[in-house]
Amino acid sequence: MMTLKVNGREHQVDAEADTPLLYVLRDDLKLNAAKYGCGLGQCGSCTVIVDGKAVLSCVVPMVLLEGKQVTTLEGLGTIAEPAPIQRAFMEEQAAQCGYCIPGMMMRAQALLQKNSKPTDEQIRAELEPHLCRCGTHMRILRAVHRAARLMDTADVSPAANGSAR
């Protein structure tokens, strides 16, 4: 048993120290957003935020998470109350199949938390570890720019600064 802090709540998790975070999020905590894409750190689908930084949850074992704060897409907002990054992706219709999108959104969220006005070049560089097969890239870029604008104008709310609700 170990304690894992996810989206502001503490969970007692029965998992071995070498279990990657991805499976604990999906299997034990029943969270959907972080996706299995490759399990090898090559595609970015499993990205979540740990202590403000985007990490690939498929290669982050539980042993690394003692005392750290994990944020998943579920922790940012809901359909009824979407976070700026979620609103932006909805407004730009930035998905086709959408499987890669949650990972991209978490990477973008982490970027926007440390740099509220990234250039297009910075966004592209940041998203380089992420693959999208449908070819939604143009919209994803637009959505991240829009999220930056939304976060800039949004009230400082838990959703807006990315901490858990």
Partner: peptide, 22 residues
């Protein structure tokens, strides 16, 4: 250009895929 009905769940961690079935 009606917004797609499937996107909100896909961008908020809803159960959107067969991979998410439990």
């Amino acid at each position: 250009p009606v917004p797609r009905v499937d996107i909100p769940a896909k961008v908020t961690g809803g159960e959107a895929y067969v991979q998410d079935m439990r």
